[in-house]
Structure formats: structure tokens, C-alpha cells
Amino acid sequence: MSAERHTRRLNVTVYSPAPGLGRGGTLLADMRRDLARSGGLAWQLAVRDIRSQYRQAALGLLWAFILPLANTAAWLFIQRAGIVKLAPTDLPYPVYVFTGTVLWAIFMDAVNAPLQQTIAAKPMLAKINFPREALILSGILQALFNAAVKLAVLLAALLVLGVNPGPAVLWVPLAVAALILAGTTLGLLVTPVGILYTDVGKGLPLVLQFAMYVSPVVFPPPAGGWGAVVFALNPLTPLLLTARDLLVGSAPAQVLQSVAVSAALLVALGGLWLVYRLAMPILIERMSA
């Protein structure tokens, strides 16, 4: 055994102060290798987190949709009581707002995951060298799991409300995956600075709250005025509309826009992954400082 170990060619890893971007080819090869290596670890971490989360919560899976349920109840009250005058929706309002809040909760999970995962792993990051990609991947896996739970409940609720999505439901996972892609991209964008300064983590919910009101979540896009422009420019609009259309069985009107937004998000995610990678050693230095 030891003889074999002696003759084996060893990978040599070099650490130097040179900037990572200067090593173009190697950098891409390293990224590909680490992504492949982190799959198993990401799975283990995701299973660990999901298990721990549900093992210590008496309500278990219920937590996955308590928030959207509460949101739905609040908006139904606001609408019924006439506190805010909402434009009429094509769908019955309870269906519109419940699908909207569930989809939004899925998006929020994905936004929060990268920063949350990275901060929770600080003790590990500061002491163990493992492919950092695993944290992001694990966050995505957890977002997917939570999304599956929410969708199952949502679909059951829709059937009860008399909405039958029909065969279009088979496309729903893809539409939801696009939402998670959008969330992950946004989350990864704020993560490097968010690790240094806690202000980012504190400010994020505020920004998201505002974002919810300029997205078709609890009320439909305005028909005109500057509000319509904001909704049209919001890249989340086509993703949310498409996902909802597929869920309720109407023909999705913004498929092309959704595909275009998703493609752009994929490119952005690749770039942000590179940033995350380059940033990690620098951030870890400051974690222990």
C-alpha cells in the first residue's frame, strides 16, 4: 500500500498572492473540478440541514407553507374589507393570491439560501478546506426540496378550490426552477459583501418586501402609468406569471420572456460563482480576524 502511495503522481496545489483571475485556464479547470467534487458533499449537507430542521420542529413540514398561508389570509382580509382597492384579477382572488404568495415564498427561500448557508458554515469555512461551491449547491437543493413540499400543498389546495391545471402541470417544475435560479442569482450577488457586513443581511428583507409589491404576487400588473413600466422591467414578472399560468391551467403568455430572462440569469450566475470563488479566501481571512 505504501509503495503504491509513493509511486502515485500527486496533484500539486500552489498558493500564492497572485490574483486568481490571472490564471484563466487553470481557474476554469479548478471550477469545473470543484463543482464535480462538491455534488456529494452538497447532498450530505442538504440532507443534514433538512433533517435537523424538521427533527427539532414539532410542526415539521407545516412550516414550509405557514408563511404563504398567513400572507394569503392577510391579503384576503385586505381585499374583502376593501382597505385597499385592488384591480380585478382574471382568476378568483384567493387562487391568485395563494399561488402568488407560495411562488414568492419559494423565490425568497432561494434568495436567502446562499448568504444563510455561508454564514452558518463560518466555523467550517474558517478551519476546513472543502469545495465552497457545496454550500451554494446545498442551498439550491434545500430550496428545491422546500419548493416541492410547497407545490404539493398548493396543487392540493387548487384542486379543492376547483382549479384543475391539466397536463400543463408537467411544466411547473421548470417554471419553479427558473424562480429558484433567479433567487439564487440575487442571493449570490449580495453574499460576498454580506459576509463582511451584517447590514446586507438586515437590509435584504426590506428590499424583498418592496420587490414583492412591484411583482405580480398579491395583485395583478397595473394596466398603465409608471407602475406598468416598473412591472414590465421587473425580470421576475414573466417568471411569476408563467408559473402561475401553468399552475392554474391557462395558456402562459410570457414564455419567451421567461426563457430570455432565465438564459440571462444563467450567465449572471456563472459570473457570480466566479466572484464567490475568488472572494472566499479573502472573506475567510476576515472571519477569524
Binding site: Y15, S16, L125, A126, P281, I284
Partner: peptide, 12 residues
């Protein structure tokens, strides 16, 4: 490999 050196070189 947790943090990068500011000077010099490390080979593992």
C-alpha cells in the same frame, strides 16, 4: 489553503 499568503509561495 484556507487563506492566501500575501507574499511567497506554498506548494502542497
Amino acid at each position: 489553503g484556507l487563506i492566501k499568503p500575501d507574499r511567497g509561495r506554498i506548494e502542497m
